[in-house]
Computed example of a mutant assay.
Amino acid sequence: MKILVTGAFGQLGSELRELSINYPNDNFTFVDREEMPLDDVNKVLDVLEEVQPDVIVSGGAYTAVDKAEAEPELVDVINHQAVAVMAKWARSNDRKLIHISTDYVFQGNSSTPLKEDEPTDPINVYGLSKQKGEEAIAQSGADAVIIRTAWVYSSHGANFVKTMIRLMTERDEISVIADQIGSPTYARDLAKAILDIIQSDKWKKGIYHFSNEGEISWYDFAVAIRELKGLDCKINAIPTEQYPTPAKRPKYSLLDKTKIRTQFGVVVPNWKDSLEEMLIKV
Results as ranks from 00 to 15, higher is better:
18 E>H: 05
33 R>K: 15
103 D>E: 08
56 I>K: 09
217 S>T: 10
178 A>Y: 03
61 A>F: 03
41 V>G: 09
211 S>Y: 00
140 S>N: 09
28 F>Y: 07
36 M>Y: 07
138 A>S: 13
240 T>R: 15
102 T>M: 09
178 A>V: 04
121 D>K: 14
187 A>H: 02
4 L>P: 07
81 Q>I: 08
39 D>I: 01
155 S>W: 01
194 I>A: 14
107 Q>F: 04
79 N>K: 07
193 A>I: 01
56 I>G: 12
3 I>L: 10
142 A>R: 00
158 A>N: 11
175 S>Y: 01
83 V>I: 11
243 Y>R: 14
196 D>F: 01
118 E>W: 06
223 V>Q: 14
137 I>H: 03
132 K>T: 05
143 D>I: 03
171 R>D: 09
147 I>S: 04
88 K>S: 13
139 Q>I: 05
19 L>M: 12
259 K>L: 15
119 P>E: 01
113 P>Y: 00
187 A>C: 10
110 S>C: 15
276 E>S: 14
17 R>T: 00
260 I>S: 13
33 R>E: 10
163 T>E: 14
162 K>N: 13
209 H>K: 08
103 D>C: 09
61 A>I: 09
70 A>E: 12
94 D>G: 11
41 V>H: 11
211 S>W: 01
222 A>C: 07
25 N>I: 06
181 I>P: 09
197 I>V: 14
208 Y>C: 04
118 E>P: 13
12 L>C: 10
254 L>Q: 03
60 G>M: 01
118 E>N: 14
274 S>R: 08
28 F>E: 03
62 Y>N: 11
